[in-house]
Design a binder for these strands. Sequence first.
DNA 1: AAGTTCGTTGCAACATATGCAACACCCATT
DNA 2: AATGGGTGTTGCATATGTTGCAACGAACTT
Lengths: 252, 252
Amino acid sequence: MSQTVDRALSILPLLAQGPADLGQVAERLGVHKSTALRLLRTLHEHGLVYRQEDQRYRLGARLFALAQEAVENLDVREIAHSHLVALNDRCGHTVHLAVYEEQEVLYIDKVESRYPVRMYSRIGKPVAITVAAVAKLLLADLTEPERRVIAEKLDYPMYTPRSTPDAAAFLKELAVVREQGWATDLGGHEESINCIGAPIRGADGRVVAAMSVSAPNVVVTAEELLTLLPLVRRTADTISREYSGTNRPKKV
Amino acid sequence: MSQTVDRALSILPLLAQGPADLGQVAERLGVHKSTALRLLRTLHEHGLVYRQEDQRYRLGARLFALAQEAVENLDVREIAHSHLVALNDRCGHTVHLAVYEEQEVLYIDKVESRYPVRMYSRIGKPVAITVAAVAKLLLADLTEPERRVIAEKLDYPMYTPRSTPDAAAFLKELAVVREQGWATDLGGHEESINCIGAPIRGADGRVVAAMSVSAPNVVVTAEELLTLLPLVRRTADTISREYSGTNRPKKV
DNA sequence: AAGTTCGTTGCAACATATGCAACACCCATT
DNA sequence: AATGGGTGTTGCATATGTTGCAACGAACTT
């Protein structure tokens, strides 16, 4: 690995927390100010870092543009998008698409609910991994040891009384999800919001993404939401087939 | 500047266009494969780059997380957000917040319309700079030479017949906007969508952000939308005052 | 006007990144 | 099976590029 690059990249998460001046960056990086300056300059040239009027640095615009471009070029997303929109047309609720990557689950697409009550979520935002239906689906597909390692490492914030309380409960839930091929989140993240989700699989059968439909209690009860399950699963299967078509089975 | 970092960062926009394998990266970077490998590895360690199953590299999840965190920590956004929501409550239309940075204009917040017809835009997405109301507001505040330089450099895509056709027209429009203190986009980006916008100013009077309200013809006519102008301007002014309060005038 | 703090530059010493060549691996071909 | 082209990967010697220092400059405070 490259030390210089390593240091430069360490600046990014540091600035993500908020603007910082040269001295602070140098200190938190453990290098001389002049070194930090040159690194920041390079980052600046690439637009990843921006220098505001008060001379302090913060993350730059190109970072957003990059993230944006990247997410739009994801194969699954491209294929899934129109199906998600169609699903939203039929049921009216918020539809999410998420992927798992290096211990994180994140939304890569979202179609907003037709109803005025909206959920707080955003593309690129890390998902509440211990409770979200999509997270359960994605993690349930990992191997047993992988699941255990991750489950141990996670925090289990009690967003609501119905949140997953600990690793044991989470692993149990993952087993259920794995078994049944779909997942729910009934008020585990926000008291009044329920979700149902289904996995999207590649040609080799592995789960490559997960989708979910979310709706608040005030619009439909959990029971009513569950009646949509067949529709959601059908949509996910359709996307799976289309995705498998473009991505031939891996020859491993 | 640092050559190593420079090379490493050059990989990002390259991958933004789509996944690439080691050889391709090395070639487009003009370096030896082994060098490219080490750079990619470092990027990978920081989560900026992800290695998919077919061994090819693409941009990684942390990039989104970073962008997300950064945008949430922007002072203007934090202050403006509740006001944008309140405005949306009153008028029901889509509300945008945007900033200018290094020749680019981008959305940093958005409150979705209550109506089913939605606009395609996304936080972090570069704005259609030659036609959007927010872009006009932000650029209008630059100095005359700056405006000219940028106007010359831009492309003028004719999204619709009402799009800004060329640099001359754009500069003229900017002058008008600068004079009147508000801006519109009447079908210049999408035929059936109109926007009105107002600037948010810092304590020194400079425009730090711009906000806009967008609505499709099918919901309200352009004339009706314009009746919201006082409300939009008042909201922008309120945000300006609050923002100026936290960011004392620069002593230059 | 003197003193502090912060960003910036030139330079010499050294650590680090570089390209090479050889290796290991997978898949396709014969 | 064996061969060959295509990957990605490793160790190593060279020299290039990065580092920290110290000194400078600018802006703000006292």
